[in-house]
Amino acid sequence: MIIRCLVACQLLLAGLLLTPAPAAEAATVTLDGVSVRLRDGTRQVVTVNRTSGTYARVTLFRKKATGWTRVIQSPGRIGYGGLVVGTERRQGTGTTPLGTYRLLYTFGTHARASSWDLRHRTIRAGDYWVQDNRSRYYNRYRNKANGGFRWRLPSSDYNSSERLRDYPKQYEYSFVTSFNYAAQVRNRGSGIFLHVNGSGATAGCVSAQRWFIRSLMSRLEPGMVPLIAIGR
Rank of each mutant, 00 (worst) to 15 (best):
P97V: 15
L98G: 06
G99C: 08
T100A: 10
Y101R: 14
L104H: 12
Y105F: 15
Y105C: 14
T106K: 13
F107K: 12
F107E: 14
G108T: 14
G108N: 15
T109N: 11
R112I: 03
A113E: 09
A113N: 10
S114V: 09
S114C: 02
W116D: 01
L118T: 06
L118G: 04
H120I: 07
R121M: 05
R121L: 01
R124I: 06
A125R: 10
G126K: 04
Y128A: 00
W129Y: 09
W129E: 03
V130W: 00
V130Y: 01
D132M: 08
N133F: 10
R134E: 11
R134D: 15
S135D: 10
R136W: 05
Y138L: 03
N139Y: 11
N139T: 07
N139S: 08
R140M: 09
Y141S: 05
N143F: 14
K144A: 09
N146K: 07
G148W: 02
F149T: 00
F149A: 00
W151M: 04
W151L: 04
L153A: 11
L153D: 08
S155C: 14
D157S: 12
N159C: 02
N159Y: 03
S160G: 03
S161P: 00
E162M: 04
E162N: 07
R165Y: 06
R165N: 09
R165V: 08
D166Y: 15
D166A: 13
Y167I: 07
P168A: 07
K169H: 04
K169R: 08
Y171S: 11
Y171C: 13
Y171Q: 13
E172H: 07
Y173I: 02
Y173F: 03
